[in-house]
Each structure stands twice: as structure tokens, then as C-alpha cells.
Write a protein that binds this DNA or RNA. Sequence first.
DNA 1: AATATAATTTAGACAAACCTAAATTTTATT
DNA 2: AATAAAATTTAGGTTTGTCTAAATTATATT
Lengths: 219, 219
Amino acid sequence: MNFSASEENYIKSIYHLQPPDGVVTTNELAGELQTKPASVTDMLKKLKAKKLLHYERYQGFRLSSEGKKIALGIVRKHRLWEYFLVQKLQFGWDEVHEIAEQLEHINSKVLIDRLDSFLNFPRFDPHGDPIPDTNGKMEVTGHINLTNLEINHAAEVSAVGSQSTELLELLSHKNIGIGTKLEVKKKFNFDKSVEIKIKNLPAFTISGQLAQSLFVKPL
Amino acid sequence: MNFSASEENYIKSIYHLQPPDGVVTTNELAGELQTKPASVTDMLKKLKAKKLLHYERYQGFRLSSEGKKIALGIVRKHRLWEYFLVQKLQFGWDEVHEIAEQLEHINSKVLIDRLDSFLNFPRFDPHGDPIPDTNGKMEVTGHINLTNLEINHAAEVSAVGSQSTELLELLSHKNIGIGTKLEVKKKFNFDKSVEIKIKNLPAFTISGQLAQSLFVKPL
DNA sequence: AATATAATTTAGACAAACCTAAATTTTATT
DNA sequence: AATAAAATTTAGGTTTGTCTAAATTATATT
Ligand SMILES: [Mn+2]
Ligand SMILES: [Mn+2]
Ligand SMILES: [Mn+2]
Ligand SMILES: [Mn+2]
């Protein structure tokens, strides 16, 4: 079965909004998609008819297992393209979302699997979100992006957003690696930079871009 | 101004059908786009209103200079993506058209210019068609693909379809380079392979894939 | 429990891009 | 020049995805 770009955007948004056990509401989804509740209701009927979601009117809705499978396919495409844009075409991680929003609707299984292979099967996108594999499986490590770590909570670096030599060079210069224990001391909203503290070293500041590339496991 | 995928497909097809001085007809375009003449007429009105073509009813139509500019932009995207698919993702030149047909509608100037740079500014796509540069200019060399050379007509190799080391390795092994004079002796439809004759050498056969990567100037 | 408010759905329209069938215009043939 | 054939356009629908305004249902407040 094939879906329109519009259907895919709805499915993906429901996937992102859906809490582990709960349900998504019409207004939430309308807000997310910048559309009107009435339009959402129309689409819900269509997606229900296609068996992509469970929905009883006025009761909210959630993806069916088929719907979840479709969603993971779109998420896979979105994140792989983002990784491609950053890693191969020198885009900043803050410039890729809009373009990936278009590219995720290109319809070709072989294209996306070859892209995956060309990129060397990356497990995280430039924002640190895990990339589902060809079967829709993705890592469920407990790590979070450093930018989401709470202030003064100890954590350990567990992954980096990419394997680029530039990133790795910067990390080694700053003595940060997998296993490094650290705390966030302060977050600066102006430029998203973050002050961190590593034991036995004076506190220092890292750029928002670098923080985005670091994933930590709270201890 | 931004155009829908449908508008872009119409514009590109008119560009390809349009003879140097003549005009395109409704039925021709309907045939090319696998649609009905009535649908073509609808779109012609819209494109005329947007000043992308010159059109008087029952009289045929041709792109305006603005329309030509748009067309070249789409052709540029189509051919760059084809080159990417073949050169980076290991697709065969016969497998890329359909995917490029989708990718050509991705809307981002910076994306396509970065892709161009990433690919090292290729001048020909995998089918030997010239790739317009960022300003819509493309080479108008008189060369044609070797697969289109008439049998027993002398010609000189003038360009290759890509710069890949694999291609160049194969060419040097076969003693073919820019400037090599040759004739096509026979074309085999079964596997598209081609028998060629180079002076002072016995005739030999090259694969269809290799022939597709060779461009010659008839002498 | 009654009523007010908020969320959701329905009804009815609209634009884009297509279609079929009928009407019109151009072109070819006698 | 008249007529036949072909090409093109128009008229009137359909589907998809959107919208506004009104009606309905659920939730919150008195
Ligand atoms: Mn999207
Ligand atoms: Mn992302
Ligand atoms: Mn296309
Ligand atoms: Mn091509």
C-alpha cells in the first residue's frame, strides 16, 4: 500500500504525539500539523478506513500496529536523510529539518536501504534520535541528549551524534569521550551553549552544536 | 514563485518536446504525460496565467523565457540526482529514472547546489545528457552517446559520463581515452553491448553500461 | 443535577488535478 | 468549396485535502 505525503505527515505526527499507553486528541494533532480540527477529523476517518489507527469518535485515537510500522518507515527516511544532509552535504543540524520533511516522502525502499548502506548504517540522526533499521527496529538505550540533561545531575557520555572526524577531533581536544562523567552547570539560552563540569577539571563551556552531538546516560 | 509537482512535470515535458523553432501540441503532451488532452488544456490555462508559456487556443504552445528557466532548474535537479544515485548509491543507469522523477520535485536551492558540489560539479548525467549549472547554462558540445552513434561512422571520444575510478580503470585497460577514434561495427540488442573498432586493433565488444558512459563527436 | 464551556464532529464549500462526453475549431480529402 | 476527420476545448463530474460555521458530545463548574 502507498500513502500520500499528507497521510504520511498525519501518521508520523500521531506517532510522535502518542504517549506509551494513552491516546492522541484531535486538537493536539491539529496544533502539531498547523491545521484545523475539522481537517483532522476528516483524515482520521480515512486512516481508520485504511486500518492504520484505532479511533472512536470523541474518544481520541492511536496507531494500529500496521500504522506504527508505517510511521517507523517514515521516521527512518526522515532521520537517514537528515544524517545525509549533515554528514555529506555540510548542512548544520539546525538547517536540515525542513528539507528532510520533503525527502521523507520519496517512495523507494531500495533507495533508502542503499542510502543507509552508503552512510554506513548510522544509529542516530544529527539530533541524537535513533534511526530505525530496515525492519523498523531501533535502539532503546536510555540515553538522552546532553541538552536535555537536568542541571547538576551526574551523567556519563554514552554516544555521539556522528562519526565525523571534525567532531571527534573537537571531542578529543576537549578530553571528552565515551564514558566521560560530567554534569551540566548552566544552559545559556542566547546561543544554546552549555557549561559543563568534569571531575578534576575546571568547568568550561561548549557550543550548542557540540552539546547536540553528545548523548549521556544519567547516573 | 513555487510550483506543484504536477506543474513541474508539465513544464519539463514541454521543454523536452519543444523543437528549436516550433510549437508543442496538446495531444503530444498528453501522450508524453500519460494523461488526457482535456487535462492538458486545463493545465495550459494555468501555466499561461502564470506567464510560463505562450499559448493561443488551438494554436499550440511553447515555453516563455521564464518557463524555460524553470524547466532548466528541474532538468538540473533530475540529472544531478540521477548522477548521485549511480555514482554514490550504486544504482545502474537504467534504474534511476523513476526515483529521479520524484527527487526532482524537492524544493531547496541550497540542497541542490550542495549536492552539485558534493558530486564535484558533474557535467553529464549517467545517460550522457548535459547537466545545467546553477544559472541554467549547460554544455552544447556536439557530442552524442556512443549508443546513438550510427554504424560504421567514424567518431572521436570526447567525454565520459563520470569520473569514477572504476570507469577510468576500465577505460585505460581497454585503451580508450579522450581523443580515441573509433567506429561502431554492431549493436547487440540482447544485452545492449556494442562491437567497436579502433584503428590498428582487432574489433572488440564493450558492455552496454560502458557504451552508455562514452560520448563521441562524429568526424 | 443543571448549566456553561471546551472539544469534536458534521455540513457545506473550495481549489487542484484529474476524468468523460459533447461541442467547437482546424486540417485534410474529395 | 463542401464535407469528413482529427485535434482541441468546454461543460460538468470526481477525489483529495483543505476551510468556516453550525451542531453535537464531553467535561467542568456552579
Ligand atoms: Mn513531511
Ligand atoms: Mn532529527
Ligand atoms: Mn517528476
Ligand atoms: Mn537522464
